[in-house]
Design a protein around this nucleic acid. Structure first.
Lengths: 298, 298
DNA sequence: CTTTTCGCTTCATTTTTTGCAGCGCTCGTT
DNA sequence: AACGAGCGCTGCAAAAAATGAAGCGAAAAG
């Protein structure tokens, strides 16, 4: 969209950190870009960038402006999506940031289900930890976020929250697999694999052990659930995961056991969007479908 | 702002109803304007105007677009106001739509009070009936609306509501001026002056008489409170007004008497803004001041 | 001290926008 | 039926704006 070109360029400069770099990224000369920015600042009535020896950086006015630019672009996308919907095309694009755990089973299934009804809609999935997902929403890089244990609820509209217990994951022949009711302290007595601190489930585990005499002594810390899943089959270790990330009843080499809520608090899986934002038709419908699915069987 | 020029032009066309008229309004040739619109429609991906034999009109996609355009412009203004505030200038502009009744005393006093502290802020006051005020908000022509008995609350954020009884207004030597407690039926027994149906106070009076055996038989219907005020001094008639529109205790030629709530429901004076909209710093502060003033002495 | 990197300026060149004139069309009036 | 007014739209040349190549001075990095 031509009339947003200057705004796009400003965004590029703020990301690149220097006019020359941004010019290269956007395939124009630095002189052209430089003057565009100077002209814009003049008609805007105030400088937008701080000039530093090694480049430029947004000043406070620029921060305000960039937020406006992003919301404008997102708004335009929304309008175009509405217009497309109007002419019966049912096209659109949905961008969603979600936790690791949703990656293997939940999101693929949901997207496939949606696309079965609306083949014109395409998707972008960002796997993000809880901090990064919120950052994505703020920068309008994602329309929706579905994460465990969000950090700053204030800036977002919460569409839905569901609780998920923490499950222990182990090989079928693990000693603990015999027990029906598993406690956290049982798990910690064995070698265990946990995700890094920025992941929701680790946050809950840290909270849980803080009240106990035992400590978390992971033999491995990995942000990949795949790693954990395979590792517990090699060494007889214990891993942790939310049920939405497990294929309960369909994997005969692994055993899953819920930990009681009294040991580890349930995780809050939360579907969020940027506060006050009106989503595109496609995104809004998809959010709706997610809400239906989550409040149902999971 | 240069990058919004095409959008401004589109708005002008939608208002003028034809490209040639709009071109004249905006001081360019119709051919130039025509081209701009065609180019825009192409990159937008859909036509925006319906071509009629006598001109053009927005199609549904265009309706969606124009709403976006207006909100974008209002947003940009807000950002610029914030930026100005940032650099300590405290400049800005406030546009408010308000009822007749607020015109003589309340709004002038409030604006003067505000400008005493922030001389850099200017004001536009639109006197509007309750329907028109809401239309103003929707079209982003006003930042705030302060009206009695709003019609469609759904699309707006209500910042404050205060109740105001209806007062009977008459000359000091009117027979009813003797009585301390006045009933509606007493007033209707004398010649009375009322505003037209679109005004809030008339709406309340209509509701009130619907439950009575008497009927409203106005000798004059006028949307000017000034007219009513002077008329009741000529013929011995009764008028009606909310106390916020009266100079109670300071006008020795007129007498004001409240009607009991059981006779005429109290009017709801409501301060509103467009739903979800973030106001400019100046507007937000002024709204705040209004809320303080209204929840206080009036 | 030299080199690199940066924002910014100058000027010729390219691209875009504009105004003018005119075409074909529909509608209301004669 | 004929006509003129008003409309959207299009070719073409002129005007305006954006762009690219080259270079300046300053500040950090090596």
């Amino acid at each position: 969209m031509r009339h947003l070109r200057t705004l796009r360029l400003i965004e590029a400069v703020s990301k690149a950190g220097s006019i020359r770099k941004a010019a290269e990224d956007m395939n124009i000369t630095s002189s052209a870009l430089n003057r565009r920015i100077q002209n814009f600042e003049e008609e805007f009535g105030a400088p937008v960038f701080e000039r530093l020896p090694r480049g430029v950086r947004l000043n406070p006015a620029g921060e305000l402006l960039i937020q406006h630019i992003r919301s404008q672009m997102a708004e335009l996308d929304r309008v175009r999506s509405q217009v497309a919907d109007l002419s019966g095309l049912r096209r659109g694009h949905v961008t969603i940031a979600c936790s690791q755990a949703l990656q293997p089973y939940f999101m693929p299934a949901q997207i496939a289900a949606y696309r079965a009804e609306h083949p014109g809609v395409s998707f972008t999935v960002h796997v993000r930890d809880r901090e990064a997902a919120e950052e994505d929403l703020r920068a309008f890089d994602s329309d929706l976020a579905l994460v465990f244990e969000p950090v700053h609820l204030g800036d977002f509209d919460v569409l839905l929250t569901v609780e998920q217990p923490t499950y222990a994951v182990m090989a079928r022949d693990h000693p603990l697999a015999e027990k029906d009711k598993l406690r956290l302290r049982d798990c910690l007595a064995y070698p265990h694999v946990v995700p890094p601190k920025r992941i929701g489930i680790r946050y809950l585990l840290d909270l849980a052990v803080a009240r106990m005499s035992q400590k978390l002594e992971p033999i491995a810390e990995a942000d990949s659930f795949e790693f954990m899943r395979h590792y517990v089959q090699n060494e007889r270790a214990v891993g942790f995961q939310f049920p939405i990330g497990l294929n309960i009843g369909k994997d005969d080499r692994l055993v899953f056991r819920p930990l009681p809520k009294t040991d580890v608090a349930h995780g809050n899986l939360t579907l969020m969007q940027m506060k006050g934002r009106t989503l595109s038709v496609a995104s809004a419908r998809f959010a709706n479908q997610l809400a239906m699915a989550l409040s149902g069987s999971w």
